[in-house]
Design a protein around this nucleic acid. Structure first.
Length: 441
DNA sequence: ATGGTTACTTAGCAGACAAATA
DNA sequence: TATTTGTCTGCTAAGTAACCAT
């Protein structure tokens, strides 16, 4: 309790800033402590020492007329600047990769909320032109220029499979991971026929955070032919799209729609998928638990699309066993209740007295309650099993237009708290205030 | 085109915390 | 009340993508 009080005091003193006259919560208001760098996957710099950050490393960014924070006694800041074109409050350079780190606002802030809203509005604008863009890249599969063909095939992957753009990275500085434009020949295998499907591309590569992407996809014949061509006379370690960069791709996208970049396709396809799946899976007759299962399944379809994985929780098998035991016990209770009901009904048949009738009615209600409890447990088990290797949080927080979920809740009378916890409701306050039940992405 | 710099979003995980259960 | 289980939060790495100089 004492520690908590101290932490609260620190939060109160350093955890907020004033932006445009409003008190806003800061996201990360502490510098990162020193320690051994791990990194994700096979990181070449793992084990290096991350230095302690001193006031002399820190740049403060605040308005000219504000109370400039005092450095700790005996120290001074690296710099104090007043740049209102950026959103960060303080920054320092980290010594492992020599990159900048920032102190920024919490997602609940007005600034971040408006930015988030904008992001989804760009994705919604894509909805209007995506058919034309698809027609265009399909036509470009036949272009005379190899570079255009590579761009068109890459864009097809980004659109259909929700791959990341894949910026080039400096070799030896980070783990060897790739995205779409940085795919190498060794990351795909072509099967003219596989398991009864034609033109199958087998993807196997490490993406962001060294998470494995493994997928077998049946693609259009022209895409397949183009891929064969791109791979001809190349070594496994060569770039698949050797003529293509993310800059070139994004310049092209910018011409097709204002604000369009490769990552917008992920946001767009994620949100569209959620909306479609909610439409397809929600049964208005279902109870709340059933509807929530449908929501989770829709969310899960998105997480699968975006390849948001997690390691299977250490306690997964055990917790599944416990749940199964619970289900078995409940089943037994249901059976017993069935028999007791039968007995009570027979008793009433014989006697026809009011007391026996009341008793039968009581047994009927008990049975119904137990059956509902059993159904809920079964739903829980299904949900947990289907979810063991899938992380729902990332898509929920970063890819799904929250207005879709808000509208769904309103339409089916689900309390918003069942979908978003307190922090999430704060982050999505703009959407909760904005969206009615007929919102359409 | 290329490389360097900067600012911002997206990502999974461990441990803290809270709720459920024994 | 003690212990177990499930959820949430903080942390910070790892991406995307813009801009600028050459």
């Amino acid at each position: 309790q004492k520690l908590k009080e101290e932490a609260d005091k620190i939060q109160e003193e350093f955890g907020y800033c004033i932006l445009d006259g409003h008190r806003e919560k800061i996201g990360n208001f502490k510098t990162e402590p020193p320690g051994l760098f791990r990194g994700r996957g096979e990181h070449p710099k793992m084990g290096m020492l991350k230095r302690r950050i001193m006031p002399e490393d820190v740049v403060i960014n605040c308005s000219r007329d504000s109370k400039i924070p005092e450095p700790p006694a005996g120290h001074r800041w690296k710099e104090v600047r007043c740049d209102n074109t950026v959103t960060w409050l303080a920054s320092w350079t980290e010594n492992i990769q020599n990159t900048l780190k920032y102190i920024m606002l919490n997602p609940s802030s007005k600034l971040k909320g408006e930015k988030d809203w904008q992001k989804y509005e760009v994705a919604r604008r894509l909805k209007g032109v995506v058919h034309q863009i698809r027609a265009q890249y399909r036509a470009d599969w036949k272009s005379k220029e190899i570079k255009k063909r590579q761009r068109a095939v890459a864009l097809y992957f980004i659109d259909k499979l929700a791959l990341r753009a894949g910026n080039e990275k400096e070799e030896g500085e980070t783990a060897d991971t790739v995205g779409c434009c940085s795919l190498r020949v060794e990351h795909i295998r072509l099967h003219p026929e596989l398991d009864g499907r034609e033109h199958v591309v087998e993807f196997d590569f490490l993406g962001k955070d060294s998470i494995r992407y493994y997928n077998k996809v049946s693609v259009e014949k022209l895409v397949f032919k183009n891929l064969q061509r791109f791979m001809r006379n190349k070594d496994p370690g060569d770039d698949l799209f050797d003529q293509l960069t993310t800059t070139f791709l994004n310049k092209h996208l910018q011409r097709l729609m204002d604000g369009l970049t490769a990552k917008v396709f992920r946001t767009y396809n994620a949100s569209v998928t959620l909306q479609e799946q909610l439409q397809a899976l929600t049964d208005p007759e279902d109870n709340v638990a059933g509807k929530l299962l449908s929501y989770n399944r829709a969310n899960r379809a998105v997480a699968v699309l975006c390849n948001h994985q997690r390691s299977i929780p250490k306690t997964f098998a055990r917790s599944m066993e416990v749940l199964q035991e619970k289900i078995n016990a409940k089943k037994k209770q249901v059976e017993e209740a069935q028999e007791e009901l039968k007995k009570a009904e027979e008793e009433f048949e014989d006697t026809k007295d009011a007391k026996a009738e009341a008793n039968a009615e009581k047994k009927r209600k008990l049975l119904k309650r137990l059956e509902e409890q059993l159904a809920r447990l079964n739903i829980q088990a299904t949900d947990r099993e289907e979810n063991k290797q899938i992380a729902l949080g990332t898509s929920k927080l970063n890819y799904l237009d929250p207005r879709i979920s808000v509208a769904w809740c309103k339409k089916f009378g689900i309390p918003i708290e069942r979908i978003y916890n307190k922090t999430q409701r704060e982050k999505f306050a703009w959407a909760i205030a904005m969206a009615g039940e007929d919102f359409e992405f």
